[in-house]
Design a protein around this nucleic acid. Structure first.
Lengths: 321, 321
DNA sequence: AGCCAGATTTGACTTTTGTCGAGAGCCGTG
DNA sequence: CACGGCTCTCGACAAAAGTCAAATCTGGCT
């Protein structure tokens, strides 16, 4: 930086423009700089989170379906992204909504747990900036040396960056070769502390993975397609923070899970607000499992998925009566 | 309304524009309306609080003086509005800052106590809109049939309106003719409930009044200039929510106070966040009294007042040592 | 001391946004 | 059923904001 015109000026410009409602040229006069500079400062102010522009997500919870889902599945809050009613790409729409919801749920001083996946990374990527200096973003599970850009640590750091918060990474692989090694690593002070700290989070953000050959676990080489198929037969219903869960949302008793370094489900359940975001329609079963396991209190889904969930709930209650 | 283009469309437009970042003409195409309408919807969205534009007040607390004041007076947070560095009118600057700070302190589900005065009304007047449906704004003291536009109930209602919140008014006069009548009225269920509810507030917003002929209490006819002068001799140092306090921030033992219907200071102190805003430099003594009485945890003042406070604190500590 | 590299600032230009008055649709009323 | 009154909607113009390449400045380095 030349002479750090930075912060101070950016803040002043943002203040005059957004809080006092002056025009850019008036701000320029006040600050004795050119209007072009003001425009640039304002952009920086938005990018830094010095100014916050947020739109209420009310409408998406006010939906009738959303209310029904909340009742049917005993969730605190459900947001439904209307399908193809809005912008072109439906999955982007869900991510944009999720990002808004997320920002609405975050409070100063919060500790936030973040898992990993394409969904989470997409959200991080389109999330607008905020200025939450005292927030901490912690990684919920170990890393994979994946060729992808949405590795667990990347998700964590990107979200921390957007929030202007501190990111706490997890310095361990997600999956180890042997159970013994995993146990040993879990006992390491650094890792143990990190794992123990997860239940202190105020908010968690994750998606749920499908149990098929397309799963990231397979793509990253943590499991072979054959192993995955076998797990599926043994009752695997979904993937949460790198762990395989059964249809009841409990950790599946399998060799793989024993080799994983990740947040215990009990720790996740201890987090007050658990925001789950599901983009793909194919993740119906996994989502049901996650909900059954109480792994989600706040839910963001597309209209189609919402419909399927309601249908399912309706059928279930009919069967019961 | 023609066919209620309302809410729904406004929200959609705001969503596409602010959350997705489309241009107005793109939004217009999507929604199949003219761009001019989009522009109008967006204005409404801002006015309704469907979109929120807020600028961080960080810089004003990061100030060295602010930190010193926090330490010297044991306050949670202090914001200092730079004098004549910014926009023309210094008192407006303080109000704009106060409004931002206020909005930053409000949380969903909060109960907010609001007193009255020119300062409070100015803040309400320039405060931007927000969408906090489950917030309640309660009036901290009785009303005066003043010719002014900043009557207690007006302050309360205006703030409630800006927040899209529910306003709870106080249906009693601030001052009665006799102590007996005041006592009787305080015992009335409606009034008693309102008074009792004050300590449940999460946030209070008020200023402090001066004890002189310019006081609102005099202008509104609650006290004559002569009475005011007499009270001053008896130790009156300031006015909080219509009550006279002494230099220690305690209720002054006087006939006037016994005839007032207002929040007890103990109730005010029970409120977690007490935001006090002082615009006029002449309110130095009253402010000191209010701080001494623990009536303020968060403070917004101008740079000049901040300087005087620090000077005072320095002198006091020097005397002590 | 002089020069380079990086970043900021600026003026001029283009694009985007705000606003106004006119026109059109809807509703309750006479 | 025609008539204001009302709001919403649109097109066109004016104002404001965004952008880019060139000019300028800074501090560090040789």
């Amino acid at each position: 930086m030349a002479i750090r015109p930075a912060e101070q000026l950016i803040h002043k410009a943002a203040w005059l423009y957004y809080a006092h409602g002056l025009r850019q040229d008036e701000v320029a006069t006040q600050l004795k700089i050119s209007r072009a500079s003001v425009a640039m400062y304002l952009r920086k102010a938005r990018e830094t989170g010095i100014v916050n522009i947020s739109t209420s997500t009310q409408l998406f919870t006010d939906d009738v379906m959303a209310r029904q889902l909340e009742d049917a599945f005993k969730l605190d809050s459900v947001w439904i992204a209307p399908e193809n009613a809005y912008v072109a790409d439906p999955s982007t729409d869900i991510a944009v909504l999720a990002a808004s919801v997320f920002l609405e749920l975050v409070k100063k001083g919060d500790r936030i747990g973040v898992a990993w996946g394409r969904t989470v990374y997409t959200i991080a990527d389109i999330m607008s900036y905020a200025d939450l200096q005292d927030v901490r973003v912690v990684q919920l599970c170990g890393n994979l040396g994946a060729p992808y850009s949405y590795r667990p640590d990347q998700c964590t750091m990107e979200i921390a960056r957007r929030l202007n918060a501190k990111g706490l990474n997890f310095y361990a692989p997600l999956v180890l070769s042997t159970e013994a090694l995993a146990q040993g690593l879990r006992a390491e002070p650094v890792i143990r502390d990190q794992l123990a700290g997860i239940s202190n989070c105020d908010l968690a953000l994750y998606s749920v993975g499908a149990v098929d050959a397309d799963s990231h676990l397979v793509k990253c080489g943590a499991l072979t397609p054959t192993e995955m198929a076998a797990l599926r037969k043994d009752g695997a219903a979904g993937v949460i923070a790198g762990q395989i869960i059964d249809a009841n949302g409990e950790v599946l008793d399998c060799g793989y899970n024993k080799r994983v370094i990740s947040a215990e489900l009990a720790s996740l359940r201890a987090i007050e607000k658990r925001l789950m975001v599901v983009q793909e329609d194919s993740k119906f079963e996994p989502l049901l499992a996650a909900i059954a396991g109480g792994l989600c209190t706040h839910l963001v889904v597309g209209a189609h998925m919402a419909g399927r969930l309601l249908e399912h709930a309706g059928a279930a209650s009919k069967k019961a009566s």
